[in-house]
């Protein structure tokens, strides 16, 4: 019966990783830089729920809606106030990454200052034992997490495939200058991508915080797992995202089971490094960029 429990745990980590990786690649694909402050969006959304629901005693569902809106605004503000201005001056990807580390530091420390560094729990109704399936336990929150993540993943990918906006996001990803020539404003499209990506990340943050608990830095780890999943899956490939997230989740839980939970992080990065050595283009084999000139 222990095996089934591991499978459920892998599935849970997988869907959260998938959601984060998807939200991240949505932003990474059109912009081509690492938006580290995305981690702060993940963390902020969970803390906003905590703030609205526990401090202001607003009912749960409206606070979730407010929290996602607030977190999305933070994501959009990063783009409008910082990245957009940098893009006008045409700086290299490295400069965005450093600026985003700066943004992350600011946002994360604001959370630490206001809420404190201790572990917080979002109170949702009453604590339940969870449903028993063939001897393994799964809580309602976990069931909701799996359902919501998978639905969002499918919805976002259908959106990217079949709607005009979704196609524009992919078009901007493959060639922003040509898009501008054809009358698609790449800045508007990137702003849209930031909006949708931040909303997905906010959802992932809330789900993850409700399942376990939260500290001001939990988003950073979550984001890094997503980034690793995206890189080993290959950028811009849906199947790659699934494979990458699954591999990361499986490796983490097997490492936790066979070695020790404290090695989970190290194992994740060892996989990343192994991929960078033997398969630098990820599962999908798409070119990263700049590697070949």
């Amino acid at each position: 019966m222990y095996d089934l429990q591991i499978l459920i745990n892998i599935l849970l980590t997988f869907v959260i990783n998938l959601l984060v990786a998807n939200s991240y690649s949505l932003i990474y694909y059109p912009t081509k830089f690492f938006h580290i402050a995305h981690a702060a969006v993940i963390t902020l959304s969970a803390y906003f729920v905590f703030f609205f629901a526990n401090k202001l005693s607003i009912p749960f569902w409206p606070s979730v809606a407010f929290a996602i809106t607030a977190a999305v605004s933070i994501g959009l503000l990063c783009e409008v106030l910082v990245y957009l201005k940098m893009r006008r001056r045409n700086v290299p990807a490295l400069a965005y990454l450093i600026a985003s580390i700066g943004l992350y530091l600011v946002l994360q420390n604001c959370i630490s200052l206001y809420f404190g560094d201790d572990t917080k729990i979002i109170n949702t109704a009453e604590v339940t034992v969870g449903h028993q399936i063939f001897g393994a336990y799964i809580t309602t929150v976990q069931l909701v997490t799996i359902a919501v993540s998978l639905v969002l993943f499918v919805a976002v990918n259908l959106f990217l495939q079949f709607t005009a906006t979704g196609k524009s996001i992919r078009a901007v990803g493959s060639n922003p200058e040509l898009c501008n020539i054809y009358g698609i404003s790449s800045n508007k499209i990137i702003l849209t991508a930031f909006g949708i990506g931040s909303a997905l990340a906010a959802t992932a943050g809330i789900l993850s915080a409700m399942d376990t608990n939260m500290t001001p830095t939990f988003g950073f780890n979550l984001l890094l797992y997503g980034v690793v999943a995206m890189i080993i899956g290959g950028v811009g490939s849906t199947r790659g995202l699934i494979a990458g997230s699954l591999l990361v989740a499986t490796a983490q839980h097997l490492a936790a089971y066979y070695i020790d939970t404290k090695w989970m992080d190290a194992v994740t990065y060892i996989i990343l490094i192994l991929f960078l050595i033997w398969k630098p283009l990820g599962f999908s084999g798409k070119r990263l960029k700049k590697v070949e000139v």
Binding site: F34, L94, I231, D260, W263, I270, L272, I273, L276, K290
Partner: peptide, 27 residues
């Protein structure tokens, strides 16, 4: 290993190395 990657991928790679080194010290 790390120098097989460039620019921002290099930063992510070194970040991974930092996490591995830290977990070695910690574990």
């Amino acid at each position: 290993i790390a120098l097989r990657t460039v620019e921002d991928y290099f930063i992510i790679c070194t970040l991974g190395i930092q996490v591995i080194l830290f977990s070695l010290m910690n574990n």
